[in-house]
Amino acid sequence: MSAAVPGFGQPDSADPEILDVPRAVRSEGELVDRLFRGAARGSGAVVLVIMLLVGIFLGYRAAEALRVAKGSFLTTSAWEPDSHHFGIAAVLTGTVLIGLVAIAIAVPLALGTALYISEYAPRRLRRTLVSVVDLMAAVPSVVYGLWGAFFLQGQVVGVSRWISTYFGWIPFLKVDGADPHDPLATTTVYTSSTFIAGMVVALMVTPIACSVMREAFSQAPVGEREGAFALGATKWGVIRTVVLPFGLGGVIGGTMLGLGRALGETIAVYMIISPVFAVQSHILQNGANSVSALIALRYGSASTFGMSALMAAGLALFLMTLVVNFIASSIVARSRSGAGAEA
């Protein structure tokens, strides 16, 4: 910048009286402004400190347990911290399975709802529908849990039995101890399963995935939509060739954001499952577990070391949701910048 100054001053150099030196542009600001900026930075610092404190404290307390458990923390299924025999193999598998079941159910629902709101719904209804979906995201998880435990549990047993009878040859749909040919067999083997917990969590993550997808779909460029219509495309043609390709980032990102929420869900899962501390890969069978349910179950009776072990489990859960959310938001951000390509 300073190199330009002599060149600028050249023509005027004959007359040194009116030599025009650029004024230093520095906004010192009034006292009030400096105070305001200081206060703003301060509030940022307070938030930063709180947030970092959570992360650092979690890591610090978890380190104690992790030093004892070392690598076996990831491979042990049992949770007996006081005899130094504990690990998150079972709970982490359970968490991921519940998340996957939830996502498998939520994605078609969210996709259909998002497409309906952005493409088919009458213009007048759209805002109402958007706030109804927001409402669905704000329904307390304990309400979903009640519904799952007192209503869905009884209804899904039949479905679980049907699936396990006809598709039991697929390894993860198998149910041990169930005899489909025995009409008097008890149905308790099908209750409190990963599948039912996943269904309830699916309802909780559908609105989150749906709102991200809807936003991505509504940003599909108008020019290309109209171009497709002008070429004689049907509505489905437009959706298939314009809306979905442009919204793909939103679909993937919304799915992952939903997965992040599903992994951290506590109360609804806790109310439905009956906890087991073994890797349970049969999703239709009684017994499941998740990291957050483990914390809710064991925090009260934990010793100091047990608390540290729970912290380690919480840290593992946090890191997992953090990675999933980070990938999701970077995908969503990238897809938005791509959607700006107006025809």
Binding site: M51, V54, S292, A296, L310, M311, G314, F318, T321, L322
Partner: peptide
């Protein structure tokens, strides 16, 4: 950091 913290599971906030 704030965006990362939205990923904090609510049970972990309680545990903290």
């Amino acid at each position: 950091i704030v965006e990362a913290m939205t990923a904090l599971p609510s049970i972990v906030a309680g545990l903290f």
